[in-house]
Nucleic acid binder design. Structure first.
Length: 234
DNA sequence: GCGACAG
DNA sequence: ATCTTGTCGC
């Protein structure tokens, strides 16, 4: 079985300067005026995540497809390759996306929604990982992050479902969403072809039993396994 | 100049 | 992201 990632996309940026230019170009193609898939209806929600071994210059990505109503796993795929870009705040997409694209190609399911680990429009140039992946694939995408990055928010109410705006100055770039009563919120932002209200509805449904959506929990576990297996061999 | 900084 | 023990709890 071939678990090696394909080569990088031909013109993948090497320098920060190139990456910035790509962001400024691609960000004009983000679609923000579609509501996205309706919550409650049949939906294949795909979680994507990436794990690293910087020592060995390895990256492992996972894509896990769930039935959004039952949270059952319906398909899985992984991809292991070389790290494509260093971690630079604001340029995370260039580090994560190549391996994620390979994993998505290998997934035997058509995603109705892709849930990313990180941000979409909540980004210094309004083009985070989730928005970038959406533009490259054409798929509806959202971002769910565990930290507020450089943004600010007033703590949402204490109950599951309570939310407050995630602010860049006075602009709402996402939402702090409480998925578990009394537990730190997650930070939701729009990627591509999904409204913020629906993004939060989907996150709440997917985070039925835990703070993080089941999509990201499954993808996180799988990419770690794939990385460990790649390092160990066999 | 200094601090902050998704994963 | 990753480095890392025990521990409390369902």
């Amino acid at each position: 079985m071939n678990h090696t990632s394909d080569e990088l996309p031909p013109d993948w940026p090497t320098t920060e300067r190139q990456a910035l230019a790509v962001q400024l170009d691609l960000r004009t193609r983000v679609v923000l005026d579609e509501p996205g898939p309706p919550p409650g209806a049949p939906l294949t929600a795909v979680g994507v995540d990436v794990a690293y071994d910087d020592e060995r210059d390895l990256v492992a990505a996972a894509a896990v497809a769930l039935d959004a109503r039952t949270l059952d796993v319906v398909a899985e795929a992984t991809a292991v390759g070389r790290v494509a870009f260093p971690y630079v705040p604001g340029l995370l997409a260039f580090r994560e996306i190549p391996a994620v694209l390979t994993a998505l190609r290998r997934l035997g399911a058509e995603p109705g929604l892709v849930v990313c680990d990180g941000y979409g429009l909540a980004h210094p140039r309004r083009f985070g990982l989730a928005a970038h992946l959406g533009v490259l694939t054409g798929l509806p995408t959202i971002g769910v992050a565990k930290n507020p990055f450089t943004f600010h928010y007033a703590p949402p109410g204490p109950d599951r479902g309570d939310a407050s705006p995630l602010l860049d100055g006075d602009e709402e770039v996402g939402r702090a969403l409480r998925t578990r009563t009394g537990v730190k919120p997650v930070f939701v932002s729009v990627g591509h072809r999904v409204s913020l209200d629906r993004a939060c509805d989907h996150v709440l449904a997917l985070a039925r039993d835990f703070r993080l959506p089941e999509t990201t929990r499954r993808a996180d576990a799988l990419c770690r396994r794939a990385l460990a297996q790649a390092v160990t061999g066999g």
